[in-house]
Write a protein that binds this DNA or RNA. Structure first.
Lengths: 198, 198, 198, 198
DNA sequence: TTGTAAGCGAGACGGTACGTCCGGTCTTCAT
DNA sequence: ATGAAGACCGGACGTACCGTCTCGCTTACAA
């Protein structure tokens, strides 16, 4: 399914996977999405752009959606790390601001929105996207909230699930309807949900 | 563009638009979407299911997205009326509960999500969906909030735009990720944004 | 299967088959075969050359072989008519000379050889080629022989089947191995099989 | 080109050609041809069936046609020896009967027909097939005819070239069109060409 | 005895063509 | 003029093989 999970890592003979081809595909997919939108993102176009044979794509990815999930996992891991350690209101606010910028500005944010969209159209996308990206990320965010509450940085009143929905939902919603996400919105949400910044 | 706007209502010779065909197309689109998802929703399939020629569809709708917008406008107008008159916290709470049910249960709610999704893939969809559905609806909702504030039912502190994003965002977000929308979430949001239910 | 057999000739609405496209396909196939051989005769190449969509070919022909059979039927009907009326040794000799030239010189003769070849590779080709071309032609040739014997122009001693194999076999064989077919060979065969030219 | 001609027999290190693999390839090719026809005879299928790597095939044969020529040379050498010594009408008749059986019954006869067919499609096949099989065989058959004439067993009137075409052509032709080859046809041909059996 | 130069199974790679599906345009006929 | 039917061009789909290549293993001669 993904480049990240070779299920049997026993040594084989023969040529190994061509890392250059893998990267070329990921970048080609990213670029095409950014330039022409999901509608123009065909396997043939990716192959053409990446200078790669179609079969090389089909050999490693079951669908173009999995390619996008791969790029999203790599990119959001790098550009949108979830605060580690014991988070404070301030660090969560910073995380949410980054998240808002990611959604409205970063090409990888476009990938997230597109995948969320495609999950509405296609059950297979929904399942894979949740299993490989949304689920783990949600887990990590919940864990962050719990650490914050346990550590005392965040009020123990808030339910972590509700808090996450309330914080993230409006940001994602505005991104989906193509509206900007002002920093003031993030601040208002944080103040309301996690307690006033006082 | 849509069935609702015959620009020249002058009497003409020859047969007028076949209302039965129009409804057959709308229902066929709805049914196919509900049964097999957006991926199976092709113009050819709609024509087949509706017992109508492809050209009849293209004559009246520029794309399958416009068909869905037509059905959504009709359905959400009926099943999700925006509170008229001078709204109270209670009536807004009721509206939001209906909205949550619409999103998670009603086939027409599926249409809304699908259109929101398709708007991420296709600029033309985004434009039309905003102009014909999202924009007017947002206007009406804003108007409702303003009426509530002016009338005194709602605290004048809340910014209507922020309030709407904060109320609707989490509901839409949970619907998009396939999660249920508990009534308690709606209540928590209303309490937080519009003041305690007191 | 072929352009020649519309099984239900009831009047229909809608556009009829595009004769220009049909001819473009037949000529493109002929030309490509003559220029680059059967190996280069792909459906995609025919479509490209004919300026026609692939689907237009698949709509009317189940395989490239049927295209070639169509061209062969048209061409050999025109350029290689079987002597009508009451044939004489002389008219049969003339027919065989024409046949020899057809095989060694005419592009349509190349089509015949290629189909005979492809029939060795593919059972479906064999069946269709026999049913649509070889069989009817053999029948007509047998009929010609019988008319000659009945009419007295040909010795009643000869078995028509054996005579045909003996006359045609060597010509086809030499064509297949790429050897020229001297007129003297035709004459020798005719003399031997149908009696001296006396 | 073929297994039979290692051009530089200088001593080398390393393992020599694997005879088992060579035979596995030849048999796999034969079997696949017999079972599924030339259309199913792909290098990949041969490799699969023979339990051999593709590269092992490409190392020793430039094309699948050469594999078939190798099998044909081995098989027809064994099962269809050309009469040695001073041939008589009777021994030639026997040879032709064997040839007819070979064409219509023997799997190796199928190989001959398939190669003759493929030579129509592909110039390279034609050249190799003539140089490696048809040419030498024709030479040997001509030599046989000449020995028969010189030795007095065959009438000096007959032109050996014409005689061969007349004798072999009808047999090959009937095999190609999928018709049986009755012994009576062979007899009739021999009688006519080489003089009555009287 | 050990280096080294093949042969070998395995299979990834850039390609081409396959036959199918659908998009959007068009043409024809009947109403 | 409209609607049903459907032919048409275009182009992406996912698959099968092509012929080339690289890998790591295994021989078996030559030093």
């Amino acid at each position: 399914m993904s480049a990240e999970s070779p299920p049997n890592p026993r040594p084989r003979s023969g040529p190994r996977r061509d890392e250059a081809a893998r990267l070329a595909v990921l970048h080609a997919a990213d670029d095409l999405l950014a330039e022409n939108g999901f509608g123009a993102l065909t396997i043939e176009a990716i192959a053409r752009r990446a200078g790669v044979a179609k079969q090389t794509i089909y050999r490693w990815w079951p669908s173009k959606v999995e390619i996008l999930i791969d790029t999203l996992i790599e990119d959001s891991g790098k550009q949108l790390p979830i605060p580690a350690g014991e988070p404070t209101v301030a660090s969560i606010r910073a995380y949410l601001r980054d998240f808002a910028d990611f959604l409205s500005t970063d090409p990888a944010g476009k990938v997230l929105l597109v995948l969320l969209a495609q999950a509405q159209h296609d059950e297979a996308t929904a399942e894979s996207f949740h299993k490989r990206y949304l689920g783990p990320r949600r887990e990590a965010e919940l864990d962050m909230m719990v650490r914050g509450i346990t550590g005392g940085g965040i009020s123990p009143r808030v339910d972590p699930e509700v808090a996450l929905d309330t914080l993230l939902g409006p940001l994602v919603y505005r991104a989906l309807i193509g509206a900007a996400i002002p920093a003031s919105l993030v601040d208002a949400l944080v103040d309301e949900v996690l307690g006033a910044s006082a």
